[in-house]
Simulated assay, not measured.
Amino acid sequence: MPDSPRLARVATLLLLFVTAVWGSTFFLIRDLVVSVPPADFLAVRFAIAALVMGAVFRRQTLALSRRDVRLGVGLGVLYGLAQVLQTVGLQHTDASVSGFVTGTYVVLTPVLGALLLRDRVDGVTWVAVLLTTAGLAVLSLRGLAVGYGEGVTLASAVLYAGHIIVLGRWSTPRAAVGLATVQAAVIAVVAAVAAVPGGLTLPSGGGQWASVLYMALVAGAAALWAQTWAQAHLTATRAAIVMAMEPVFAAFFAVLLGGESATARLLLGGGLVVASMYLVELRGMLSRRRLRGATAAEDPPVEALHHDV
């Protein structure tokens, strides 16, 4: 955690920028995977990101300890599997819906923290879980069945939540650059393994390659570094709340640039999901205020101490 509030603010703003960049990729990926299989696209995307990061951050990567390398490999496997599932899901659902379903990692993060790390989950968080479930039902249910795309995307959200928890608990600012580089390389390997059965299909045409390069360098290399650094200065739950804006950005770009419609179903379901995310944030704000109030009550002013002497 940071020693000063200023670092926390910088980390929050940086993570918000990353979230906006991620949100801009949903409709690009959906268009791209029409002709390029998801695993193939991810293998190319993160191979480019890993090569660039390895060249730029070679010294920092070689300086990693064995513990940091093992952590980077584990994080890369989690993130790589999540990316594969999310991209497969995008073949079967709208980019805006995918963004909202992916965004459930905001609520899943504290829940998984309670299950895996025995963090306490209060009543407000459980209310947020119910709101999220209701929002997902509106977005995803087709009669009494959940759409395949939404189900696969929800599985990716669980993995993203695990990635956030591990990154927030064990990453350090010193190792952030090297960790991000190791993660990019491992993600490329995970995607390449998934692509092996059908052979590797490369993007074709300037438009597809421009999209891949944007997602490799900006939404891949730069975003991985920024997220890893920012989460070394923020708690896992706080980071997840900041990233609650991802589905909002995803829907915004999908409607503005991706040709999707702002339907009543999208607005209602997405609104419930976003409401659940910010309910968790409100709970955190109130908890911090109560903590500051309790600390102030326990520590009397210096003037009062002097008066008693």
Rank of each mutant, 00 (worst) to 15 (best):
P5L: 11
L13W: 13
D31W: 01
V34L: 14
V34S: 12
V36Y: 12
P37S: 09
L42N: 14
V44Y: 06
V44W: 06
R45P: 12
A49K: 01
M53F: 11
M53Q: 13
F57D: 05
R58A: 11
R59S: 14
S65L: 11
D68K: 01
V69K: 13
Y79C: 07
G80T: 04
L85G: 00
A95N: 09
V101E: 02
A114S: 08
V127E: 00
V129A: 15
T133K: 00
L136W: 05
S140T: 15
S140D: 09
R142E: 15
A145D: 14
V146F: 15
A157V: 12
I164Q: 00
V166A: 15
L167E: 00
G168M: 07
A176T: 03
A176D: 00
V189Q: 06
A191H: 08
L200M: 15
L200V: 13
A210Q: 10
L213S: 09
L217E: 13
G220S: 13
A222K: 05
T228W: 10
A230C: 05
T235M: 06
A244R: 03
A244M: 15
V248Q: 06
R265E: 09
L268S: 11
G270W: 07
L272A: 13
V273N: 14
L286H: 09
L291W: 04
G293H: 08
A296C: 12
V302N: 03
A304K: 02
